[in-house]
Amino acid sequence: MQRKRIHMLVLAGGLLGGLALAAPVMAADAPAAPAAAAAPAAAAPTSAEAEKAAKEAAIAAAIAAPPADAAMLANTCAGCHGTNGVSAGPSMPSIAGMPAPYLKHVMAEFKSGKRPSTIMGRIAKGYTEEETSRIADFLSKAKWQNVASHANSQLATKVDDARAKKGKKLVDTQKCGKCHEDDGLTQDEDTPRMAGQWVDYLLIKMQDFKNQHLTVPQPEKMQKAIDKLSPQELEDIAHFYASKR
């Protein structure tokens, strides 16, 4: 504990070195008054600035602090993605057993902002590469389960057989199976499993592909297929993959 505190002060000192020595750092513990009293008049930061700098230093120090173990980190995902990554919510993807390189890649894109998201960007920024890597490794070892709706869940969309049938034809003509092998059942480092995934989640993703306000990063081949298909057709494909178990 003691060692960590020193580490934090050193780091904070480094960041604030140009500003006003240690006083602003102390402000983290006792805001405003002591900092104002201790700081020299001329180049003195305002107490609000000092507070902000101290806060940023505390965040930088916390990010640099040693990571928790894989289970501790990955279990925090379960509140949205379900225990061990098996999602119970129709709009949340199941991520159990997905390939670690795929999970790492997606998290890196969320973190950089390259991949649009409602909430994952805010969350991904909270983890270092090492922490993300631990999470991805842990979840990649979890067992995939086809999604199933709880009796208390009333919003899950049911797979539409007619649409799934149309989707199957589109999948064949577009040769989706070249990457999404075995009707989306298999996966490799770059390709997520889709068979047995929530249809609602797949529908949202398909809608995102066609959303003029969003740019979802895709491999070239995938982008070409998306461009060729109508939103309706993409949704048919979502029904098809969700229907496979």
Binding site: G79, H81, A88, G89, P90, S91, I119, H150, L155
Partner: peptide, 17 residues
Amino acid sequence: KQEALYNESWYQSIMAD
């Protein structure tokens, strides 16, 4: 609208957890 959908899905997953 998406966040409204995620709300109910968040709920189902956290209750399952």
